[in-house]
Design a protein around this nucleic acid. Sequence first.
DNA 1: TAATAACCTCGCAA
DNA 2: ATTGCGAGGTTAT
Length: 297
Amino acid sequence: MSLVSQAFVLPIDQQTLPLDLTSTLACGQCFRWRVDGDGAWNGVVGRDLVRLSMGPEGLIIESSTTPTAELAESLAGYLRLDDDLPGLHARLGGDPHLREAFDNYPGLRLMRQEPWETLAGFILSSTSNIPRISKTVELLSDTFGDEVELDGIRRRTFASAESLAEAGEQRLRELGCGFRAPYLAGAAEAVATGRLPLDELRGAPYENVVGRLTELKGVGEKIADCAMLFSLDRLEAFPADRWVRKVLTDLYDLPANISYDGAREWAWERWGGDAGYANQYLFWNARQSTRPMRISQ
DNA sequence: TAATAACCTCGCAA
DNA sequence: ATTGCGAGGTTAT
């Protein structure tokens, strides 16, 4: 088994360090991870095509570049393995609705994705759905990304901001972006020119980051919150979409017409810096129990 | 400040 | 197979 010999195993103790690849990679925070026939997940992280699966001793990592301890460390950051999930479950588990979500998806983790890919993906999410977003993101990558190969699997890196800026609105419309095409092209231009330095936003105050992101046409508070929560280390971000808002009204008795800011303030009072995790667990639990998504391809 | 229509196209259900 | 509906929001009125 030459494949196994090339794999790197990152020890995982599910008791102290729970990790569930399926819920983490399928819960709607990322758009480019797929399960293959063996039940392993493959996705592109930076310039590497990576294949992940859970073995008895931990996370099995294969990569288009030789899997090393350094890559494993990088993926540990990508999967936010440093987040204390048991602690989170203990802090918020008194809430019966979160308790249910924790019990259903105990190893669901937020991720630390690349800011540009995340922002672009969620610009495309506007009035759309996960299958369509995934398809468009993949088409953009197939068109503008660089090929990477692992054990016969061929994928491409995500389309750079430069490539999408150069492509322009009309080309992005041809590739199925619809009315989001000018938004994506504009964001790509801002990032490519350095006018919007995404990586420098990581440490800035919350309101400043929201302010910078929402300067972009097509990026409102919800999409800004998604980019912040899924890629910019802002775990307090609370991207209340229609599913989460329905949870807030149906399960927590908040008024249906509560403002976006009102929902965020309410979440911060209740969950503080854990608001982002609460959001994702509630989103995925509601989404799966209402209209379960088929996890495949 | 708050409500409403328009925006592209595609996936999915009937 | 074909049709019709609604989709993880934002902007413009």
